[in-house]
Amino acid sequence: MLRYAARRALAAVPLLAAISFLAFLLNQLAPIEPAVAVLHAQGVPQATEELIAAKRTELGLDRPLPIRYAEWLLSALKLDFGQSYVTGQPVLALLCPALLHTLQLAAVSFAVIVLLSIGLGVFCALREGTRLDQGTRAAAFFLTALPPYLLAAGLVWLLSVKLDLLPTSGLGGPASFVLPAAVLAAGYAGVYFRVIRSSMIAGRHDDSILYGRACGLPERTLTLRMLVQSLRLTVPIFAMAVPILLGSTVVVENVFAWPGLGTMSVKAILSRDYPVIQAFVLLLASAFVLFNAAADIVGAMLDPRLRKEL
């Protein structure tokens, strides 16, 4: 098991290297030269040849690519992502509060997703084929086809404007988490609950459950056992939901004016603030790779059959 974990973790290293190189290249592939972009972002009306050349030297853009990559990577490892082209602040100063806010939102949504999908999954699996089961599944199906921003608009209109129960946007007290977390969780819970439901149903026809029932175990113990079985299969899928959530809060954050990574990245894109975009891509892609490795390792811990790989 330890060997598997070590090998799986090692396999992530070249991926991380490739990702960092791609994130670095983003800057180089841009159709607008970085020096020009900086001048634009700082509001210089006319970018003359001399200004561009001076900016290029200032930013160190006149040196060869591999050297710049090595320097960029070394400082990125020290969490120094350079300075924002727009405000001149260090990127880290922008990134940290945004990451914190997004993490808070993602954590709340994740808890809602897990509770909802396990609750609904068990509820529906025990009532397989009844009206309640079909109704819940139809509602979940509808929710996954509903664009999150439309759901957000509808909820804001109903709960914040008509009933005046919750704030419409921004980060404030606990009440401000309700709507963004609900919108984020709605689509995902609709899918993950189906996973729990179908693996519960598959487990129900398992011989071990049949045997338990024949031995006279109470139904509640059997249900619990089925749940544990199906969680064993679904934990890796849930683990991957964390980085997916972090990366897909973009729309919800912008709708609710949430001061997180999504709002930050869209703002950076619209003003071509490349260092911020680079840091955002590097951070989330690394999180994705690390969580993927962690999900595989946890999956292998729970299910020894998966250890043969690698």
Partner: peptide
């Protein structure tokens, strides 16, 4: 490598580089 970029992030990266 391509699959290790989460979907939205990759899209935002490309739009960030090439423009909206």
């Amino acid at each position: 490598v391509m699959l290790s970029f989460p979907g939205y992030v990759m899209t935002l990266a490309v739009i960030g580089v090439l423009g909206t």
